[in-house]
Amino acid sequence: MSNRHSSTVDRQSDDELISAWLDGRLADAERVVFEARLRAEPVLKRRVDTTRLLIDTARTLPAQPLPRDFTIPLPVDAPHRAPSRVQVSPLKWFLRVGSALAAAVFVIAIGLDLAGLSARPVVLPAPAPQAAFVAPPAQSEASTAADAARVEPAESGAAAPPATTPQAESATGEQSTQAMRQAAEPAAEAPEAQPAPEQPQPLVAPKAAPQAAPGATPQPDAMQQTVATEAPAPQADALSAPLPAETPQTPDAMTYTGEPAAQPDTTPWRRIVAGVALVLAVSLGVLGWRRS
């Protein structure tokens, strides 16, 4: 066992000596000893000769041709990589811009239509226009006061929208109806309903409306008076009272001050414009797309 181990160690040592001697890496003293052994040991010499043959043959192993070039592909210059500007023909440019403009007009028209729908005021039935008619200043104070009593509840019901104040919320159609009834009653009862009718100037609805709507203080009184002086006549009679007939119908005396001046309804025109714009946008867009 020990002999085999020592022989293996000697073999490895001999191999290192052979390799170093063949490469000229032995010191002078080692080289002299080794060369003496070579002359004395044919087996060692045979190993050395075979190792030399091996080295000589290995150094003649042919170089393999390159299967391909291993250089790294250079990045393409930026100017060549940048896409050239696309030349747009005038017709294509017109189609594109026209389509965009038509689409914009379509969107604006639809937007205006939707905005008009959302901003349209809630129009209550008949009382408002009736209350907007006021008497001329030439009438007596009593009639003026009666008119004032006639106007204020109606104004509070007609001009104040239902959602303005909590008090105004109570002024629903019933209140308007009561105000109409009160307006239909004789003028003699009016001074009781409105205690301070000292203003000789005629009440103008646009001026009275802001006073009535924000404060809405006269409303409870008006409500109480309306309830207290509620006529036993049926509601249909009060509603059918010929109120316009009580006031002079001369054109000079009539002043419409309630609703803003009636504007022509432009909704159909908007829709027509929107439709035309939509058709233009789609057709020009399709033409531009087909030509590209």
Partner: peptide, 29 residues
């Protein structure tokens, strides 16, 4: 490096010695 090289050479040499037909005539015994 010396150790690895000597071992590699020794293994290849022994391989060649075990295949005398690969060797030139003067190496055959």
């Amino acid at each position: 490096v010396k150790s690895r090289l000597s071992r590699a050479r020794a293994k290849l040499r022994d391989y060649l010695l075990s295949r005398p037909e690969l060797l030139p005539d003067e190496f055959r015994q």
